[in-house]
Design a protein around this nucleic acid. Structure first.
Length: 427
RNA sequence: GGAGGGGUGGCAGAGUGGUCGAUUGCGACGGUCUUGAAAACCGUUAGGGGGCAACUCCUCAUGGGUUCGAAUCCCAUCCCCUCCGCCA
């Protein structure tokens, strides 16, 4: 959702920004309905004001015992009531139209975001580390996982169907170690406050983050009005729905570990082997609520916080600034972190760090006050993964498997959690 | 699951059909007094929509209804608390 005043006062800005995202925003339609709605609302409220006045006078007249006059006023009020009814209906209908139109507006890309529609037009802003080299062609993660008995794909399919993994033995432990390490790292090194939210949320929470009504087919639902979360962004962003922060408390930074559930309805046949794309995966998420004037600076810091995990693990990666047409509808500016997976010989997205500005805050009604007596303003909300576990695991297995022995070296920061420094290949 | 009780402003807590968007207390903010502070005293203090503005409309959990008029009456839904049962 955009600020209505922005569309009214600066329609061209909205047209141009939307076009950069490849969306033909209904600006003219909005402006026309908006004008009608405001006129209708004004008429409706005027009649209502008169009715309220008459109603109030009845009470006074009754009090003074002027029964006759009170009866006259009652008749007058009844007339006005009928008028209010039709005017209200028209105003409400126009407002509903306006809301429907409003939801078709994408968030506008920031000026620093490059033009483009396709992934190839994204811009790599920096790389870290070197591509690892191997004596023999590096193996792919599902082979390594089988070799070390870290993941049982067959039994996963038996119990849950395709697109799931059962982590076994040291695989399960490594999975858990990554989560523990990332949480501790974000809390202790980067100063995030940990929360553990529910994995089932009401539909109203999904509307707050913009997943509903548009992306219903991506979500798992239940018989109740509860949905499985596609990302911790949903419960964590909604923590403060309808609340007003004290401006001096900002920024507020949360990290959260949750499982994430996605139907991947549009991705059938893509990345079907292994754990590159599964219906359930685990992730540590970072969410920040910040002052509007700080949000772009905070975005850079968010990226650095997410990157620091990859650096600590010693994994080669790149930071990609997404072009306007590839970042999705909700964001203003988005950096992807892509870790290099040698066996796949490609870069895997393990984090999307996005500044939504006030887009989500407006939908979820999350505000702050600069000082006593000041009007509440919408906060800017940012989030990014820090990081997604399965793809990180892929990069880790493929990067640290020694060609000669087949053993896997555990990166130093994970050793306290694993209790060992090397996964030796079972015979 | 059964039986009761309840959801009002930052918090506490009045208000059972008519100047109630709401008495009061606490907190917060501003001021007087003071060298400074405390105390005392005075004042301010919900959110949102529309309008350049005057102003106006909506909101007392949510959605309907009754009425000229609803925080107040009726219906439904949600949430919270207490007791009993059940399960950990």
């Amino acid at each position: 959702m955009l600020d209505r005043n922005l569309i009214r006062q600066n329609p061209d800005l909205v047209r141009v920004g939307s076009k950069r995202k490849g969306v033909d925003a209904p600006v003219d339609e909005f402006l026309s309905i908006d004008t009608s709605w405001r006129t209708a609302t004004h008429e409706w409220e005027s009649t209502q004001a008169e009715m309220n006045r008459v109603s109030k006078s009845i009470g006074a007249l009754m009090g003074q015992g002027k029964k006759g006059e009170a009866e006259e006023a009652k008749a007058r009020a009844a007339e006005l009531k009928a008028k209010v009814g039709t005017q209200e209906e028209r105003a409400k209908q126009l407002e509903a139209q306006l809301r429907e139109i409003e939801l078709r507006f994408p968030n506008l890309p920031h000026e620093s975001v490059p033009d483009g529609m396709r992934p190839e037009e994204n811009v790599t802003v920096r790389e870290w580390g070197d591509r690892p080299t191997f004596a023999e062609p590096p193996r792919q993660h599902f082979d390594i996982a089988l070799e070390h008995r870290l993941i049982d794909f067959e039994r996963a399919a038996k119990i849950s169907g395709s697109g799931f993994a059962v982590y076994t033995g040291l695989g399960a432990k490594l999975h858990r170690a990554l989560i523990q390490f990332m949480l501790d790292h974000q809390v202790q090194v980067n100063g995030y406050d940990e929360v553990y939210p529910p994995s089932l949320v009401l539909s109203s929470s999904l509307v707050g983050t913009g997943n509903l009504p548009k992306f219903e087919e991506d979500l798992y639902s239940t018989k109740d009005d509860l949905y499985l979360i596609p990302t911790a962004e949903v419960p964590v962003t909604n923590l403060y729905r309808d609340e007003i922060f004290d401006g001096t408390d900002l920024p507020i930074k949360h990290c959260a570990f949750t499982p994430c559930f996605r139907r991947e309805a549009g991705a059938a046949g893509k990345d079907t082997r292994g754990i590159l794309r599964t219906h359930q995966f685990e992730k540590v998420e970072l969410v920040k609520y910040v002052l509007p004037e700080e949000s772009y600076n905070e975005l850079e810091l968010l990226v650095v916080d997410a990157e620091s995990v990859l650096q600590a693990l010693g994994l080669h990666y790149r930071v990609v600034l997404l072009c306007a047409g590839d970042m999705g509808e909700k964001g203003c500016k988005c950096y992807d972190l892509e870790v290099y997976a040698p066996g796949e010989d490609r870069y895997l997205e393990v984090s999307s760090c996005t500044n939504f500005e006030a887009y989500q805050a407006r939908r979820a009604n999350i505000r702050f006050r600069r000082g006593p007596g000041e009007k509440p303003e919408f906060v800017h909300v940012l989030n990014g993964s820090g990081l997604a576990v399965p793809r990180l695991l892929v990069a880790l297995l493929e990067t640290f498997r020694l060609s000669d022995s087949g053993d896997i070296v555990i990166p130093e920061p994970l050793r306290p959690y694993m209790g060992i420094g090397l996964l030796t290949r079972p015979k």
